[in-house]
Computed example of a mutant assay.
Amino acid sequence: MTIYAVGDIHGYADELDRALGLIEADGGPDARIVFMGDYTDRGPDSRGVLDRLIEGLTARRNWIAIQGNHDRMFLRFLTEGRENDSRIKSGLSWMNKRLGGPSTLGSYGLGGEGAAFLQAANGGVETLASYDVAGSPLDREELVMRAREAVPQAHKQFLAQRPLWHREEGLLFVHAGLRPGVALEDQDEDDLLWIRDGWLDDPRDHGPLVVHGHTALDFPQHYGNRLNTDAGAGYGNPLVPVAIEGRDAFALTPRGRVALNLGSSA
């Protein structure tokens, strides 16, 4: 059985459409696909990405969509007005264009890149001072209210209902990775969404092949114990879907399949 994984999309709806076309050409219209999270931020059309995923899930396509850290940041901004996450050691706000919040809000008609005016306080933690929407400066509370009105309820529900992980026979799909040596049921949510240190350099067998994203590369890469599907779409690279058969993996390109041998990057 072939299972397809689509790494971090980051608001590039056109790249999602292209990746879905590659998957259909390889595995047909009923292909089983796991989307690895980070549907929003940085790219110009987060709204379009969520529309496509919701449409597919509503139509009962053979799709699974797990949660990414950027999806949680967007949801927390909508529900709690929160713009900072303790796992961002730099103190950057979600409203910084490097994280991509303004691009996401822009896809719903609220400002966009360059709309946020930020200030650093509280030991260097960045916070929103004002946000320009159609020439009107809004404070954070006003922006949150406008965002709650602009974002459809179906999008909020989609973000809130994403699972943190998904299991198939011999495979575990999770956005960022695992804390090595910790049972899945005891994993910390923040680690599942954010982990890099202590995970990326751990060579041990985790049991199932762990399929993840979160750490951007220039091409998907197979490490034997884990498979990184994030090909850097959030930084302008093409979105590269991956076909998984057992513990073997293949990148799907316009030229066809490219085997992802252990340690290979192209």
Rank of each mutant, 00 (worst) to 15 (best):
L16I: 10
A19C: 03
A19Y: 04
L20K: 04
L20E: 08
G21N: 09
I23Y: 07
I23L: 11
A25D: 13
G27V: 13
G28A: 11
P29W: 15
P29E: 14
D30E: 15
D30M: 14
R32K: 15
M36D: 06
M36N: 07
M36V: 13
G37S: 08
D41T: 07
D41S: 03
R42N: 08
R42M: 07
G43Y: 07
G43V: 10
S46T: 14
G48R: 08
V49A: 08
V49C: 10
D51Q: 14
R52Y: 13
L53H: 05
E55F: 15
G56E: 08
A59F: 09
A65N: 05
G68M: 09
N69S: 05
H70M: 11
R72H: 13
L78F: 12
L78N: 08
E80H: 13
R82T: 10
E83L: 10
E83P: 00
R87K: 08
G100M: 02
G100H: 03
P102V: 01
P102R: 00
S103G: 00
G106R: 02
Y108K: 05
E113Q: 08
E113N: 12
E113M: 06
A116E: 05
V125W: 09
L128F: 11
A129W: 02
D132P: 00
V133G: 00
L138N: 00
